[in-house]
Design a protein around this nucleic acid. Structure first.
Lengths: 224, 224
DNA sequence: TTATTATTTCAACAAGCGTTGAATTATAAA
DNA sequence: TTTATAATTCAACGCTTGTTGAAATAATAA
């Protein structure tokens, strides 16, 4: 309803973004997207090609922006920290806050996009390929920073901790509203500030705990 | 390929379970399910009704079993702990280990089912309704136990911590393989023991951290 | 056996799907 | 204005979808 000046091409992207985030790739037809965008069904094909190409276009549209903003946040906290390097909390903050800010903008497009990211990140196999292609480079920057902040940690532990953080984040991005129901309204999935204010110390403590205890304690991975 | 003695009805459930977990509700047609089960397409309708009813049947089939096993694990750790009650770690262990055991059984059905759970838990709106109906009662038992283990905690904090734990768990259940790619094979999403061995101390530390720091510190929720 | 009921398949339906070539309109260039 | 190009719609294609009533088969009861 907001912008009337948007091109039809952009309206297709916006509508597709919203519907894909809500119903997944197979839950949305090109005709529903076209109707939602107020456009003929053939126009999506003209601008983007096949349905999967449209999906990719939606997925890629905001990826670079997001990567830049997180990259910048990491650089900022690194310069602020000096040569001893930033703390675990500061690194996680740099990783997560840009997402909170994106979700908090009035623009519902970002909210939809991040929900779409959650959908893709939870999709087996093909989701992994799409995510890796666009986000692995940035994630590896953060992993490197975390290794420096936790010099005694085993590499494997850091990856598992990242996995847990990524899961917590993904559920927040998905905005399923489960927390609203469970808490009887005490917590709202739309209250992003609360979500991230809790997620940051929660995950930071997890990193510290797992990566500080000396290794091979009950992990039974080597010789039997 | 395994069991040849299963009824056609069960084969429909098994195939649907696997395909729904892999491709989501809209990504699977009744014909693909029927083909996979070696059965006519009309048979699914005869046994289960509409497509959504079949989906619900798959979803509900193992829910009670799972709830029982987690409920039992909680009771066990409570009796072992005596009247002072179990620790956060013990409660989380009771919450998570039954899932690990289910994933580790040779039966691939459980793996598929839990991936389906992850899919549903990440689905906006309708996912919340389905999950709440079957799992809220059990989850509230665990929340109560956690409140006792963290008597100084604010209720809201406990819910947010549970939200984070649920996210970490969900991504593990989804088995997207992201961690495999990211870590270059150092961590495998199929290595369930490692996943849970890390998830438990990670989330327990998060609970302790968030629920011990005295409240209203930068949460800016009450009067300004 | 026959009669009855439960299971399974067959055949088809109306509707929606992604996609495309040709026609139409709007925009920009000459 | 005329000409060329870009944007958009129209109309239709072959295919797949969920669903269903009737026919066929298998299992059970009499």
């Amino acid at each position: 309803m907001a912008a009337r000046k948007k091109s039809k091409r952009d309206r297709i992207l916006d509508t597709a973004e919203e519907l894909f985030a809500l119903h997944g790739y197979d839950g949305v037809s090109l005709r529903k997207i076209a109707t939602g965008a107020g456009v003929d069904v053939a126009l999506a094909n003209y601008h983007f090609g096949k349905k999967l190409d449209l999906f990719s276009a939606v997925f890629e549209r905001r990826a670079a922006l997001l990567n830049d903003s997180r990259h910048q946040a990491l650089r900022d906290c690194q310069s602020k920290a000096g040569k001893k390097g930033p703390s675990v909390e500061q690194i996680i903050e740099a990783f997560l806050r840009p997402l909170e800010m994106a979700q908090e903008t009035g623009d519902s497009g970002w909210k939809n996009y991040l929900a779409l990211l959650a959908y893709i990140n939870n999709s087996p196999y093909w989701g992994r390929l799409m995510m890796s292609k666009l986000f692995d480079e940035l994630v590896n920057e953060f992993i490197e920073a975390l290794k420096q902040a936790l010099p005694q940690a085993e590499e494997e532990d850091i990856y598992w901790c990242y996995h847990n953080m990524s899961g917590a984040l993904t559920l927040t991005l998905a905005q399923t509203g489960r927390i609203d129901t469970l808490s009887g309204g005490k917590c709202l999935s739309s209250d992003f500030q609360s979500a991230y204010d809790h997620m940051i110390p929660f995950t930071a403590a997890g990193f510290r705990k797992v990566c500080s205890q000396r290794s091979s304690k009950g992990k039974s991975k080597g010789a039997m």
